[in-house]
Design a binder for these strands. Structure first.
Lengths: 218, 218
DNA sequence: TTATATTTTTAGACTAATCTAAATTTTATT
DNA sequence: AATAAAATTTAGATTAGTCTAAAAATATAA
Protein backbone atom coordinates (compact mmCIF):
# COMPACT_ATOMS: atom_id res chain seq x y z
CA UNK A 1 0.00 0.00 0.00
CA UNK A 2 0.92 3.67 -0.29
CA UNK A 3 1.64 5.97 2.61
CA UNK A 4 -0.44 9.08 3.34
CA UNK A 5 2.44 11.15 2.04
CA UNK A 6 2.68 9.25 -1.22
CA UNK A 7 -1.06 9.64 -1.69
CA UNK A 8 -0.85 13.37 -1.13
CA UNK A 9 1.85 13.69 -3.77
CA UNK A 10 -0.24 11.71 -6.26
CA UNK A 11 -3.25 13.89 -5.57
CA UNK A 12 -1.19 17.07 -5.99
CA UNK A 13 0.27 15.87 -9.28
CA UNK A 14 -3.19 14.88 -10.46
CA UNK A 15 -4.62 18.32 -9.74
CA UNK A 16 -1.67 20.11 -11.33
CA UNK A 17 -2.14 17.99 -14.48
CA UNK A 18 -5.76 19.05 -14.92
CA UNK A 19 -4.89 22.23 -16.82
CA UNK A 20 -3.57 20.01 -19.59
CA UNK A 21 0.01 20.46 -18.40
CA UNK A 22 2.42 17.83 -19.77
CA UNK A 23 5.15 17.27 -17.20
CA UNK A 24 4.29 18.80 -13.84
CA UNK A 25 7.23 20.77 -12.45
CA UNK A 26 9.03 20.01 -9.22
CA UNK A 27 8.53 23.57 -8.00
CA UNK A 28 4.79 23.50 -8.65
CA UNK A 29 4.44 20.35 -6.56
CA UNK A 30 6.60 21.82 -3.80
CA UNK A 31 4.40 24.92 -3.75
CA UNK A 32 1.18 22.95 -3.63
CA UNK A 33 2.37 20.75 -0.78
CA UNK A 34 4.21 23.51 1.09
CA UNK A 35 7.44 21.57 0.97
CA UNK A 36 10.86 22.00 -0.68
CA UNK A 37 11.78 21.08 -4.26
CA UNK A 38 14.51 18.75 -3.02
CA UNK A 39 11.96 16.78 -1.02
CA UNK A 40 9.77 16.55 -4.09
CA UNK A 41 12.61 15.14 -6.18
CA UNK A 42 13.20 12.44 -3.57
CA UNK A 43 9.55 11.46 -3.45
CA UNK A 44 9.16 11.48 -7.22
CA UNK A 45 11.95 8.94 -7.49
CA UNK A 46 10.18 6.73 -5.04
CA UNK A 47 6.87 7.03 -6.89
CA UNK A 48 8.66 6.30 -10.16
CA UNK A 49 10.14 3.12 -8.64
CA UNK A 50 6.60 2.07 -7.74
CA UNK A 51 5.42 2.82 -11.30
CA UNK A 52 2.97 5.42 -10.05
CA UNK A 53 4.55 8.21 -12.11
CA UNK A 54 6.76 8.47 -15.17
CA UNK A 55 9.70 10.73 -14.72
CA UNK A 56 12.81 11.94 -16.50
CA UNK A 57 15.28 14.17 -14.72
CA UNK A 58 14.61 17.86 -15.27
CA UNK A 59 11.60 17.07 -17.48
CA UNK A 60 8.80 17.08 -14.95
CA UNK A 61 6.55 14.24 -13.91
CA UNK A 62 3.35 12.59 -15.15
CA UNK A 63 1.03 10.10 -13.49
CA UNK A 64 0.84 6.61 -14.94
CA UNK A 65 -2.58 4.93 -15.26
CA UNK A 66 -1.88 3.25 -11.95
CA UNK A 67 -0.96 6.55 -10.26
CA UNK A 68 -3.95 8.31 -11.71
CA UNK A 69 -6.28 5.58 -10.46
CA UNK A 70 -4.96 6.02 -6.93
CA UNK A 71 -5.34 9.82 -7.13
CA UNK A 72 -8.91 9.60 -8.42
CA UNK A 73 -9.95 7.15 -5.75
CA UNK A 74 -8.59 9.45 -3.04
CA UNK A 75 -10.45 12.39 -4.56
CA UNK A 76 -13.59 10.24 -4.63
CA UNK A 77 -13.17 9.49 -0.94
CA UNK A 78 -12.47 13.08 -0.10
CA UNK A 79 -15.58 14.38 -1.81
CA UNK A 80 -17.85 11.67 -0.43
CA UNK A 81 -16.69 12.44 3.11
CA UNK A 82 -17.33 16.13 2.47
CA UNK A 83 -20.91 15.31 1.51
CA UNK A 84 -21.23 13.24 4.68
CA UNK A 85 -19.88 16.00 6.89
CA UNK A 86 -22.18 18.64 5.41
CA UNK A 87 -25.36 16.65 4.87
CA UNK A 88 -25.28 14.30 7.85
CA UNK A 89 -23.19 16.10 10.46
CA UNK A 90 -24.30 19.64 9.56
CA UNK A 91 -20.86 21.12 9.03
CA UNK A 92 -20.64 24.21 6.87
CA UNK A 93 -19.00 24.08 3.43
CA UNK A 94 -16.00 26.07 4.62
CA UNK A 95 -15.30 23.69 7.53
CA UNK A 96 -15.03 20.32 5.85
CA UNK A 97 -11.86 20.41 3.78
CA UNK A 98 -9.31 19.65 6.49
CA UNK A 99 -11.34 16.83 8.01
CA UNK A 100 -11.93 15.25 4.60
CA UNK A 101 -8.20 15.58 3.97
CA UNK A 102 -7.68 13.06 6.77
CA UNK A 103 -10.67 10.83 6.13
CA UNK A 104 -9.78 10.42 2.44
CA UNK A 105 -6.80 8.24 3.28
CA UNK A 106 -8.87 5.52 4.90
CA UNK A 107 -8.99 3.91 1.56
CA UNK A 108 -10.84 0.64 1.56
CA UNK A 109 -13.09 -0.19 -1.33
CA UNK A 110 -15.87 -1.49 0.89
CA UNK A 111 -16.04 1.59 3.11
CA UNK A 112 -16.12 3.94 0.13
CA UNK A 113 -18.87 2.03 -1.63
CA UNK A 114 -21.00 1.74 1.51
CA UNK A 115 -20.57 5.44 2.19
CA UNK A 116 -21.52 6.28 -1.39
CA UNK A 117 -24.67 4.20 -1.07
CA UNK A 118 -25.54 5.67 2.34
CA UNK A 119 -25.29 9.15 0.86
CA UNK A 120 -27.49 8.23 -2.11
CA UNK A 121 -24.75 8.21 -4.76
CA UNK A 122 -24.19 11.97 -4.84
CA UNK A 123 -22.75 13.45 -8.06
CA UNK A 124 -21.23 16.62 -6.57
CA UNK A 125 -19.58 17.58 -3.31
CA UNK A 126 -20.63 20.60 -1.20
CA UNK A 127 -18.45 22.91 -3.31
CA UNK A 128 -19.92 21.70 -6.57
CA UNK A 129 -16.91 19.57 -7.47
CA UNK A 130 -17.83 16.36 -9.29
CA UNK A 131 -17.46 13.07 -7.40
CA UNK A 132 -15.75 10.36 -9.52
CA UNK A 133 -17.93 7.24 -9.80
CA UNK A 134 -16.60 3.90 -8.63
CA UNK A 135 -14.92 3.29 -12.00
CA UNK A 136 -13.12 6.62 -11.75
CA UNK A 137 -15.19 8.53 -14.31
CA UNK A 138 -15.60 12.24 -13.60
CA UNK A 139 -18.13 14.62 -15.08
CA UNK A 140 -16.21 17.86 -15.65
CA UNK A 141 -18.61 20.77 -15.82
CA UNK A 142 -17.80 23.55 -18.23
CA UNK A 143 -15.92 26.38 -16.62
CA UNK A 144 -18.34 29.25 -17.09
CA UNK A 145 -17.77 31.71 -14.25
CA UNK A 146 -19.91 34.55 -13.04
CA UNK A 147 -17.33 36.95 -14.53
CA UNK A 148 -18.06 35.55 -18.01
CA UNK A 149 -21.66 36.76 -17.93
CA UNK A 150 -22.84 40.02 -19.51
CA UNK A 151 -25.44 42.45 -18.28
CA UNK A 152 -28.89 40.93 -18.09
CA UNK A 153 -27.80 37.28 -18.12
CA UNK A 154 -29.10 34.87 -15.49
CA UNK A 155 -27.34 31.79 -14.12
CA UNK A 156 -27.31 29.26 -11.28
CA UNK A 157 -24.31 28.83 -8.98
CA UNK A 158 -22.85 25.34 -9.51
CA UNK A 159 -19.37 25.48 -7.97
CA UNK A 160 -16.25 27.36 -6.94
CA UNK A 161 -12.72 27.47 -8.34
CA UNK A 162 -11.19 28.71 -5.09
CA UNK A 163 -11.68 26.69 -1.91
CA UNK A 164 -10.25 28.90 0.84
CA UNK A 165 -12.22 29.28 4.03
CA UNK A 166 -12.31 33.04 3.64
CA UNK A 167 -13.76 32.88 0.14
CA UNK A 168 -16.36 30.25 1.01
CA UNK A 169 -17.33 32.12 4.12
CA UNK A 170 -17.70 35.35 2.17
CA UNK A 171 -19.90 33.66 -0.42
CA UNK A 172 -22.12 32.24 2.30
CA UNK A 173 -22.62 35.71 3.75
CA UNK A 174 -23.71 36.92 0.31
CA UNK A 175 -26.03 33.88 0.10
CA UNK A 176 -24.08 32.87 -3.00
CA UNK A 177 -24.35 29.12 -2.31
CA UNK A 178 -24.88 26.16 -4.65
CA UNK A 179 -28.16 26.24 -6.51
CA UNK A 180 -28.84 29.93 -6.02
CA UNK A 181 -29.98 31.98 -9.01
CA UNK A 182 -28.14 35.17 -9.92
CA UNK A 183 -28.78 37.94 -12.44
CA UNK A 184 -26.22 40.45 -13.66
CA UNK A 185 -27.55 43.98 -13.28
CA UNK A 186 -24.44 46.00 -14.08
CA UNK A 187 -20.71 45.68 -14.69
CA UNK A 188 -18.12 48.43 -13.98
CA UNK A 189 -16.01 48.72 -17.11
CA UNK A 190 -12.86 49.82 -15.29
CA UNK A 191 -12.32 46.78 -12.98
CA UNK A 192 -15.20 44.41 -13.88
CA UNK A 193 -16.85 44.80 -10.50
CA UNK A 194 -20.38 43.42 -10.83
CA UNK A 195 -23.70 44.41 -9.43
CA UNK A 196 -25.87 41.31 -9.26
CA UNK A 197 -29.20 40.16 -7.89
CA UNK A 198 -29.17 37.29 -5.38
CA UNK A 199 -32.41 36.23 -3.71
CA UNK A 200 -33.91 39.60 -4.70
CA UNK A 201 -31.05 41.47 -3.02
CA UNK A 202 -28.55 43.75 -4.80
CA UNK A 203 -24.96 42.59 -4.20
CA UNK A 204 -21.66 44.13 -5.31
CA UNK A 205 -18.93 41.64 -6.11
CA UNK A 206 -15.32 42.15 -7.25
CA UNK A 207 -13.84 40.52 -10.34
CA UNK A 208 -11.48 38.58 -8.06
CA UNK A 209 -14.55 37.01 -6.46
CA UNK A 210 -16.75 36.62 -9.55
CA UNK A 211 -14.14 34.85 -11.63
CA UNK A 212 -13.90 32.08 -9.03
CA UNK A 213 -17.61 31.35 -8.98
CA UNK A 214 -18.68 28.67 -11.44
CA UNK A 215 -22.19 29.12 -12.85
CA UNK A 216 -24.54 27.61 -15.40
CA UNK A 217 -26.44 30.01 -17.62
CA UNK A 218 -30.21 29.71 -17.68
CA UNK B 1 -0.55 17.13 19.04
CA UNK B 2 0.25 13.44 19.40
CA UNK B 3 1.14 11.12 16.56
CA UNK B 4 -0.94 8.07 15.67
CA UNK B 5 1.79 5.94 17.19
CA UNK B 6 1.80 7.81 20.47
CA UNK B 7 -1.97 7.52 20.63
CA UNK B 8 -1.80 3.78 20.08
CA UNK B 9 0.67 3.40 22.93
CA UNK B 10 -1.57 5.41 25.25
CA UNK B 11 -4.56 3.29 24.31
CA UNK B 12 -2.62 0.08 24.89
CA UNK B 13 -1.41 1.24 28.31
CA UNK B 14 -4.93 2.31 29.21
CA UNK B 15 -6.37 -1.10 28.35
CA UNK B 16 -3.60 -2.96 30.17
CA UNK B 17 -4.27 -0.85 33.27
CA UNK B 18 -7.95 -1.84 33.41
CA UNK B 19 -7.30 -5.04 35.36
CA UNK B 20 -6.15 -2.86 38.25
CA UNK B 21 -2.50 -3.37 37.34
CA UNK B 22 -0.16 -0.77 38.90
CA UNK B 23 2.80 -0.27 36.57
CA UNK B 24 2.18 -1.77 33.15
CA UNK B 25 5.17 -3.80 31.99
CA UNK B 26 7.24 -3.09 28.92
CA UNK B 27 6.76 -6.63 27.66
CA UNK B 28 2.99 -6.46 28.00
CA UNK B 29 2.88 -3.33 25.89
CA UNK B 30 5.23 -4.83 23.32
CA UNK B 31 2.97 -7.89 23.08
CA UNK B 32 -0.19 -5.85 22.70
CA UNK B 33 1.29 -3.66 19.98
CA UNK B 34 3.22 -6.44 18.25
CA UNK B 35 6.48 -4.57 18.62
CA UNK B 36 9.74 -5.08 20.54
CA UNK B 37 10.38 -4.20 24.19
CA UNK B 38 13.25 -1.92 23.19
CA UNK B 39 10.91 0.11 21.00
CA UNK B 40 8.48 0.37 23.88
CA UNK B 41 11.16 1.73 26.19
CA UNK B 42 12.02 4.42 23.67
CA UNK B 43 8.42 5.47 23.25
CA UNK B 44 7.72 5.46 26.98
CA UNK B 45 10.54 7.91 27.50
CA UNK B 46 9.02 10.18 24.90
CA UNK B 47 5.57 9.94 26.48
CA UNK B 48 7.09 10.63 29.89
CA UNK B 49 8.75 13.77 28.51
CA UNK B 50 5.34 14.89 27.33
CA UNK B 51 3.85 14.17 30.78
CA UNK B 52 1.45 11.63 29.32
CA UNK B 53 2.79 8.79 31.49
CA UNK B 54 4.74 8.49 34.70
CA UNK B 55 7.69 6.17 34.50
CA UNK B 56 10.63 4.91 36.48
CA UNK B 57 13.17 2.62 34.90
CA UNK B 58 12.40 -1.07 35.38
CA UNK B 59 9.24 -0.22 37.35
CA UNK B 60 6.61 -0.16 34.62
CA UNK B 61 4.52 2.73 33.42
CA UNK B 62 1.26 4.45 34.39
CA UNK B 63 -0.86 6.98 32.57
CA UNK B 64 -1.10 10.48 34.00
CA UNK B 65 -4.48 12.23 34.06
CA UNK B 66 -3.48 13.90 30.80
CA UNK B 67 -2.50 10.58 29.18
CA UNK B 68 -5.65 8.88 30.40
CA UNK B 69 -7.80 11.68 28.97
CA UNK B 70 -6.22 11.20 25.57
CA UNK B 71 -6.70 7.43 25.72
CA UNK B 72 -10.34 7.71 26.72
CA UNK B 73 -11.10 10.20 23.97
CA UNK B 74 -9.60 7.86 21.39
CA UNK B 75 -11.65 4.97 22.74
CA UNK B 76 -14.72 7.19 22.57
CA UNK B 77 -13.98 7.94 18.93
CA UNK B 78 -13.33 4.31 18.13
CA UNK B 79 -16.60 3.11 19.59
CA UNK B 80 -18.67 5.88 18.03
CA UNK B 81 -17.25 5.07 14.60
CA UNK B 82 -18.04 1.39 15.17
CA UNK B 83 -21.66 2.31 15.84
CA UNK B 84 -21.69 4.39 12.66
CA UNK B 85 -20.22 1.59 10.57
CA UNK B 86 -22.70 -0.98 11.84
CA UNK B 87 -25.85 1.10 12.13
CA UNK B 88 -25.48 3.44 9.18
CA UNK B 89 -23.24 1.59 6.74
CA UNK B 90 -24.52 -1.93 7.53
CA UNK B 91 -21.18 -3.49 8.34
CA UNK B 92 -21.21 -6.59 10.51
CA UNK B 93 -19.85 -6.51 14.06
CA UNK B 94 -16.81 -8.58 13.12
CA UNK B 95 -15.82 -6.21 10.28
CA UNK B 96 -15.57 -2.85 11.98
CA UNK B 97 -12.59 -3.01 14.30
CA UNK B 98 -9.81 -2.33 11.80
CA UNK B 99 -11.63 0.54 10.13
CA UNK B 100 -12.46 2.14 13.48
CA UNK B 101 -8.80 1.73 14.41
CA UNK B 102 -7.99 4.22 11.65
CA UNK B 103 -10.96 6.53 12.07
CA UNK B 104 -10.37 6.93 15.82
CA UNK B 105 -7.26 9.03 15.22
CA UNK B 106 -9.12 11.80 13.44
CA UNK B 107 -9.48 13.41 16.78
CA UNK B 108 -11.22 16.71 16.62
CA UNK B 109 -13.68 17.62 19.31
CA UNK B 110 -16.24 18.98 16.89
CA UNK B 111 -16.30 15.90 14.67
CA UNK B 112 -16.69 13.55 17.63
CA UNK B 113 -19.52 15.54 19.16
CA UNK B 114 -21.38 15.88 15.86
CA UNK B 115 -21.02 12.17 15.21
CA UNK B 116 -22.26 11.35 18.71
CA UNK B 117 -25.32 13.53 18.13
CA UNK B 118 -25.95 12.08 14.67
CA UNK B 119 -25.94 8.58 16.16
CA UNK B 120 -28.33 9.59 18.93
CA UNK B 121 -25.81 9.51 21.81
CA UNK B 122 -25.36 5.72 21.93
CA UNK B 123 -24.21 4.24 25.25
CA UNK B 124 -22.67 1.03 23.88
CA UNK B 125 -20.79 0.01 20.76
CA UNK B 126 -21.75 -2.97 18.57
CA UNK B 127 -19.81 -5.35 20.84
CA UNK B 128 -21.52 -4.08 23.99
CA UNK B 129 -18.52 -2.05 25.13
CA UNK B 130 -19.50 1.19 26.86
CA UNK B 131 -18.89 4.47 25.03
CA UNK B 132 -17.28 7.12 27.27
CA UNK B 133 -19.38 10.31 27.38
CA UNK B 134 -17.88 13.63 26.32
CA UNK B 135 -16.47 14.18 29.81
CA UNK B 136 -14.74 10.80 29.73
CA UNK B 137 -17.06 8.94 32.10
CA UNK B 138 -17.52 5.24 31.35
CA UNK B 139 -20.24 2.93 32.61
CA UNK B 140 -18.47 -0.36 33.33
CA UNK B 141 -20.95 -3.22 33.31
CA UNK B 142 -20.42 -6.03 35.78
CA UNK B 143 -18.52 -8.91 34.30
CA UNK B 144 -21.03 -11.71 34.57
CA UNK B 145 -20.33 -14.19 31.79
CA UNK B 146 -22.46 -16.96 30.39
CA UNK B 147 -20.09 -19.45 32.09
CA UNK B 148 -21.06 -18.03 35.51
CA UNK B 149 -24.67 -19.14 35.13
CA UNK B 150 -26.09 -22.35 36.59
CA UNK B 151 -28.67 -24.70 35.15
CA UNK B 152 -32.06 -23.06 34.72
CA UNK B 153 -30.85 -19.45 34.83
CA UNK B 154 -31.83 -16.97 32.12
CA UNK B 155 -29.87 -13.95 30.88
CA UNK B 156 -29.50 -11.42 28.08
CA UNK B 157 -26.32 -11.08 26.01
CA UNK B 158 -24.79 -7.64 26.67
CA UNK B 159 -21.21 -7.88 25.44
CA UNK B 160 -18.08 -9.87 24.64
CA UNK B 161 -14.67 -10.08 26.31
CA UNK B 162 -12.92 -11.37 23.20
CA UNK B 163 -13.09 -9.34 19.98
CA UNK B 164 -11.51 -11.59 17.36
CA UNK B 165 -13.22 -11.90 14.01
CA UNK B 166 -13.46 -15.67 14.38
CA UNK B 167 -15.20 -15.46 17.76
CA UNK B 168 -17.63 -12.76 16.69
CA UNK B 169 -18.41 -14.59 13.51
CA UNK B 170 -19.04 -17.81 15.40
CA UNK B 171 -21.39 -16.05 17.81
CA UNK B 172 -23.33 -14.57 14.94
CA UNK B 173 -23.83 -18.01 13.43
CA UNK B 174 -25.25 -19.20 16.77
CA UNK B 175 -27.47 -16.07 16.79
CA UNK B 176 -25.74 -15.11 20.05
CA UNK B 177 -25.84 -11.39 19.34
CA UNK B 178 -26.45 -8.41 21.64
CA UNK B 179 -29.87 -8.37 23.26
CA UNK B 180 -30.63 -12.04 22.70
CA UNK B 181 -32.09 -14.05 25.59
CA UNK B 182 -30.44 -17.31 26.64
CA UNK B 183 -31.38 -20.06 29.08
CA UNK B 184 -29.00 -22.67 30.49
CA UNK B 185 -30.43 -26.16 29.99
CA UNK B 186 -27.45 -28.28 31.04
CA UNK B 187 -23.76 -28.08 31.95
CA UNK B 188 -21.24 -30.91 31.42
CA UNK B 189 -19.39 -31.29 34.71
CA UNK B 190 -16.14 -32.46 33.15
CA UNK B 191 -15.31 -29.45 30.91
CA UNK B 192 -18.15 -26.99 31.58
CA UNK B 193 -19.55 -27.30 28.08
CA UNK B 194 -23.04 -25.80 28.11
CA UNK B 195 -26.28 -26.69 26.46
CA UNK B 196 -28.31 -23.51 26.12
CA UNK B 197 -31.49 -22.26 24.51
CA UNK B 198 -31.17 -19.39 22.01
CA UNK B 199 -34.23 -18.23 20.07
CA UNK B 200 -35.89 -21.55 20.93
CA UNK B 201 -32.96 -23.49 19.49
CA UNK B 202 -30.72 -25.85 21.47
CA UNK B 203 -27.07 -24.82 21.17
CA UNK B 204 -23.89 -26.47 22.53
CA UNK B 205 -21.15 -24.06 23.53
CA UNK B 206 -17.66 -24.68 24.96
CA UNK B 207 -16.39 -23.09 28.16
CA UNK B 208 -13.78 -21.24 26.08
CA UNK B 209 -16.66 -19.57 24.26
CA UNK B 210 -19.09 -19.12 27.16
CA UNK B 211 -16.58 -17.43 29.45
CA UNK B 212 -16.05 -14.67 26.90
CA UNK B 213 -19.73 -13.82 26.53
CA UNK B 214 -20.91 -11.11 28.93
CA UNK B 215 -24.53 -11.45 30.03
CA UNK B 216 -27.02 -9.87 32.42
CA UNK B 217 -29.18 -12.21 34.47
CA UNK B 218 -32.94 -11.81 34.23
C1' DT C 1 25.79 32.89 -28.45
C1' DT C 2 27.64 33.82 -24.35
C1' DA C 3 26.30 35.25 -19.75
C1' DT C 4 22.84 35.26 -16.24
C1' DA C 5 18.96 33.66 -13.87
C1' DT C 6 16.00 30.02 -12.68
C1' DT C 7 14.93 25.36 -11.89
C1' DT C 8 16.16 20.94 -10.51
C1' DT C 9 19.04 17.57 -8.53
C1' DT C 10 22.55 15.76 -5.37
C1' DA C 11 25.02 15.32 -1.08
C1' DG C 12 24.83 15.10 3.54
C1' DA C 13 22.33 15.81 7.84
C1' DC C 14 18.09 15.49 10.94
C1' DT C 15 13.81 13.41 13.33
C1' DA C 16 10.43 9.71 14.41
C1' DA C 17 9.87 5.14 14.95
C1' DT C 18 11.69 0.93 14.62
C1' DC C 19 15.06 -3.07 15.05
C1' DT C 20 19.09 -6.34 16.74
C1' DA C 21 22.46 -7.41 19.92
C1' DA C 22 24.64 -6.54 24.07
C1' DA C 23 24.53 -4.85 28.80
C1' DT C 24 22.07 -4.13 32.99
C1' DT C 25 18.59 -4.75 36.49
C1' DT C 26 15.10 -7.35 38.68
C1' DT C 27 12.95 -11.66 39.93
C1' DA C 28 12.97 -16.50 40.83
C1' DT C 29 15.35 -20.65 42.34
C1' DT C 30 18.19 -23.34 44.56
C1' DA D 1 22.66 -15.42 49.72
C1' DA D 2 24.46 -16.80 45.37
C1' DT D 3 23.21 -17.88 40.92
C1' DA D 4 20.25 -18.56 36.99
C1' DA D 5 16.47 -16.80 34.34
C1' DA D 6 13.63 -13.27 32.77
C1' DA D 7 12.66 -8.54 31.93
C1' DT D 8 14.27 -4.14 30.71
C1' DT D 9 17.34 -0.78 28.98
C1' DT D 10 21.14 1.00 26.13
C1' DA D 11 23.94 1.40 22.03
C1' DG D 12 24.12 1.63 17.44
C1' DA D 13 21.88 0.88 12.91
C1' DT D 14 17.85 1.39 9.56
C1' DT D 15 13.93 3.53 6.96
C1' DA D 16 10.68 7.30 5.55
C1' DG D 17 10.34 11.80 4.94
C1' DT D 18 12.23 16.12 5.38
C1' DC D 19 15.72 19.95 5.21
C1' DT D 20 19.92 23.16 3.81
C1' DA D 21 23.56 24.17 0.91
C1' DA D 22 26.02 23.30 -3.13
C1' DA D 23 26.28 21.53 -7.86
C1' DA D 24 24.31 20.74 -12.33
C1' DA D 25 21.06 21.49 -15.98
C1' DT D 26 17.81 24.27 -18.42
C1' DA D 27 15.75 28.59 -19.78
C1' DT D 28 16.16 33.58 -20.61
C1' DA D 29 18.29 37.75 -22.04
C1' DA D 30 21.56 40.76 -23.67
Amino acid sequence: MNSFTEENYLKAIYKLSLNGVQGVSTNAIADKLATKPSSVTDMIKKLADKKLVSYQKYQGVNLTKKGSDVAVSIIRNHRLWEVFLVEKLNFKWDEVHDLAEELEHINTHKLTERLDEFLGFPKFDPHGDPIPDKDGNIIQHKDVTLSDLIRGEKAVVVGVKEHSKSYLNYLEQLQLVLGVEVEVKDIVEFDATMQILVNNKQVIISNQASKNLIVKKI
